[in-house]
Amino acid sequence: MKASFLSIGFLFLIASAPACSNQKKAAETSQTSEQQEMEVTGEIVKIENGKDGYMATVKDSDNKNYVVTISIVNLQKSGGTYKQFQTGEHIWAKGTFWKDDSGQIYITAKDIKSVK
């Protein structure tokens, strides 16, 4: 009887081992994506309003465009302050980013500031 309990316990331990490794891998992936942040400084050339913020297309000094998502929720989570900017204004934005298939860079702003 003692041997059957040990066998069941051993099988349970083996079966749960892959679940632990998947959780560790997910945590490592999450940490890696958090480290991929980008900053952009430039002029807002286009604004698309959304439900809880807007997307601003920012053109930098090299004439490269970045689409910056400026959201009330995302800025509050990261300790930033939401502000509604207008086209023609110059801003600095920092946040996590990703690229689409065409190479367009999208930044989810964690911090934004007006630049003079």
Score class of each variant (00 low, 15 high):
30 S>T: 12
72 I>W: 00
65 N>W: 06
11 L>I: 14
14 I>R: 07
8 I>A: 15
6 L>M: 12
7 S>P: 01
61 S>G: 08
36 Q>A: 11
26 A>D: 09
46 K>C: 04
35 Q>G: 14
3 A>D: 15
87 T>C: 01
113 K>T: 15
82 Y>H: 04
74 N>C: 00
101 D>G: 13
60 D>F: 08
18 P>S: 08
28 E>R: 09
86 Q>A: 15
89 E>L: 07
81 T>Q: 09
19 A>W: 07
107 I>D: 04
1 M>F: 05
61 S>R: 15
115 V>P: 00
101 D>A: 13
66 Y>E: 09
79 G>Q: 03
104 Q>I: 13
54 Y>N: 01
107 I>M: 04
7 S>M: 12
83 K>N: 08
66 Y>Q: 04
54 Y>R: 03
110 K>T: 06
20 C>K: 08
66 Y>I: 13
5 F>Q: 13
77 K>Q: 07
53 G>Y: 03
25 K>V: 12
4 S>H: 10
20 C>W: 08
72 I>M: 03
16 S>G: 08
54 Y>L: 02
91 I>R: 04
98 W>P: 01
8 I>G: 05
90 H>Y: 11
90 H>Q: 10
46 K>L: 14
38 M>F: 07
74 N>Q: 05
63 N>G: 03
66 Y>P: 05
18 P>Q: 05
64 K>F: 09
116 K>M: 09
81 T>R: 03
83 K>P: 01
12 F>H: 09
59 K>A: 13
19 A>S: 09
100 D>A: 03
27 A>R: 11
43 E>S: 11
53 G>M: 00
37 E>G: 13
115 V>M: 10
35 Q>M: 13
77 K>R: 11
64 K>Y: 06
31 Q>A: 13
69 T>F: 08
94 K>P: 01
3 A>Y: 10
91 I>L: 03
84 Q>H: 05
2 K>D: 14
112 I>A: 00
56 A>S: 10
35 Q>F: 11
70 I>T: 08
108 T>K: 03
91 I>G: 02
